[in-house]
Simulated assay, not measured.
Amino acid sequence: MNAHQYRAMREFIQSMDDTLPGNFEITKEGIVHDLVGPNGRHELTRARIRKRLEKVMPEDLVAHTGTPDVEDVPEGIMRHPDVMLIAEADMEGDGSFDPRTLIAAVDVVSRSNPDNDWVSKVRDYPLLGIPLYVIFDPRTGSGAVLSDIHETPIGPRYATRKDFVYGEDVTIADWTISTTDLPRYSQG
């Protein structure tokens, strides 16, 4: 993707933000549109993770769940993690956050587009230099912590994966939180 194509996609997303439902992101393959906005269980999971992290992290760090996105224009990638662990000082300024300032990105798997979290973001976050990626999957009551970026013939990838199931404690960077009482998607 060249710079012109990326700018065109970015402008398209900005023009669609209030027009179409769902979330837009830009990957190496183009625009990802999750048609279905997050449901209550997704949002509750995100809120509980944020609260639990902020109880154990130093005050100058934030488990941020809002906007803006993280973006690397030269890579042609714009992503929006559900929770971003970032220093308050790195949130100053205008525009997207520099992904290399994130301590970790945390995502709650979307019921309607799980491959976005389990495949595309697993590929894109190391390219962005995000050192730690944590996935919570309410479909299965499990997740994974991905870390240790290393170079491969097809680009940077996470070398280490630690799986967990809901009910276990999970360590994200230097902080351990409980996964007890995280909601699951209903099986219907």
Rank of each mutant, 00 (worst) to 15 (best):
A3G: 02
A3L: 05
Y6M: 01
E11L: 13
Q14F: 08
S15F: 02
M16G: 02
M16N: 03
D17R: 10
D17G: 07
D18N: 04
T19I: 07
P21F: 08
G22A: 06
G22D: 03
F24W: 15
F24M: 14
E25P: 12
E25I: 09
E25C: 12
T27N: 14
I31T: 05
L35Y: 13
V36D: 12
G37C: 06
N39F: 01
G40Q: 05
G40P: 00
G40I: 04
R41L: 05
L44T: 12
L44A: 12
R46N: 09
A47I: 11
I49K: 11
R50T: 10
R50Q: 09
K51E: 12
E54P: 15
P58S: 10
E59K: 15
E59S: 15
E59A: 15
L61A: 03
V62E: 06
T65G: 06
P68W: 00
E71I: 02
P74D: 00
H80C: 09
H80D: 11
D82T: 14
A87I: 06
E88N: 13
E88V: 12
D90I: 01
M91E: 06
M91P: 10
E92P: 02
D94W: 03
S96N: 08
S96Q: 03
P99K: 12
L102P: 08
A104I: 05
A104E: 02
A105C: 09
V106S: 02
D107I: 11
V108F: 03
R111D: 07
N113I: 05
D117H: 10
Y125A: 02
L132C: 13
L132V: 14
F136I: 13
P138E: 01
G141F: 08
G141R: 04
S142I: 00
V145N: 04
V145H: 05
S147G: 06
D148C: 15
I149T: 09
G155E: 02
R157K: 03
T160V: 11
K162I: 10
D163M: 10
D163K: 14
F164S: 08
Y166C: 07
G167N: 04
G167F: 03
E168T: 09
E168F: 08
D169H: 01
V170C: 06
V170S: 08
V170Y: 09
T176M: 04
I177G: 06
I177N: 08
S178K: 04
D181S: 12
L182Q: 07
R184W: 03
Y185I: 04
Y185H: 08
S186L: 08
Q187H: 09
G188V: 05
